[in-house]
């Protein structure tokens, strides 16, 4: 069962719109990147998916149930949201405590807790930091702690808000491995990102937002092939596809190998 947003809008208490009539369906186990300018409505859209925000008009359903009919805690058990700023999410005094917070709250038995915490720590590469206070960790590792705390739970959908911010090459590989494992387990990953190379390398479906609306929803080739969408959503093509286009070699080639093949 999918997440379905139908004409979902969200307005602030003062009446100004943050998201305007968004319609979007995210299927089980799907991987999808949401891109667009700062302030385009991306974070508000995903917060509606996990019930942190409820639509002011239209509807959002998760596995057929409207988020307005459930508590945020219930929806969030199915749809995990990893905050953009780990400091908004992390409050434990050591990494282990942070990861065990949800199992304690849900009164899981020790065996399940150990297994889920071990799995999450391994997937996010933070096993050697379990005894450390998260506040003593660099920003990028703290982000993996925030991701780990969500992966401990049994979510069918995981939302990552700017997962590559400040991430080096090694962190990026770890993130990709983690997403592959989630995909293999049938967990959908929804990522908000400004990193276009990450989008091209790791996603097949891209949703572009501008001015509180979705302006494109399709494959990487479709979205990055459309100059109008790129300019309205303030996106940039990665360097190599842009080069291929400027040289008149291809308007659709996105990957390095494809461009290498075009140059004789």
């Amino acid at each position: 069962m999918p997440i379905v947003l139908s004409d979902a809008s969200f307005s602030y208490p003062d009446g100004s719109l943050a998201v305007d009539s968004v319609t979007l369906r995210i299927n089980d186990g799907e991987r999808i990147a949401i891109v667009g300018q700062n302030g385009a409505g991306k974070t508000t859209t995903v917060k509606m998916m996990n019930g942190l925000l409820k639509p002011s008009s239209g509807s959002v359903t998760v596995d057929g149930l409207a988020t307005t009919d459930q508590t945020t805690a219930t929806t969030a058990r199915t749809v995990g949201y990893v905050f953009q700023n780990p400091d908004d999410q992390i409050f434990g005094s050591d990494v282990q405590g942070e990861l065990e917070y949800m199992p304690k709250y849900l009164k899981w038995d020790a065996e399940v807790t150990e297994q889920r915490v071990g799995r999450a720590a391994k997937m996010t590469g933070i096993r050697r930091f379990l005894k450390v206070n998260p506040n003593d960790l660099p920003f990028a590792i703290k982000k993996f702690v925030a991701i780990g705390a969500i992966l401990v739970g049994d979510c069918k959908y995981v939302i990552l808000d700017e997962p590559t911010a400040g991430l080096d090459d090694r962190g990026l590989k770890l993130l990709n491995r983690m997403m592959d494992q989630l995909e293999a387990e049938g967990v959908a990953v929804i990522a908000i990102t400004h990193d276009m190379r990450f989008v091209v390398d790791s996603f097949t479906r891209v949703v572009a937002m501008a001015n509180r609306k979705i302006i494109a929803d399709g494959s990487c080739e479709e979205v990055f092939g459309n100059d109008d969408v790129l300019s309205r959503a303030k996106l940039k093509r990665p360097e190599v596809p842009q080069l291929a286009r400027e040289l008149g070699l291809s308007t659709t080639a996105l990957h390095l190998n494809a461009v290498v093949a075009l140059i004789r």
């Binding site: 700062n38 700017e162 400040g166 400004h194 303030k234 996106l235």
Partner: peptide, 13 residues
């Protein structure tokens, strides 16, 4: 120190 980590491509430029 990392001035553009949270910025869209346009703002980074």
């Amino acid at each position: 120190d990392e001035p553009t980590s949270q910025l869209d491509p346009d703002a980074s430029e």
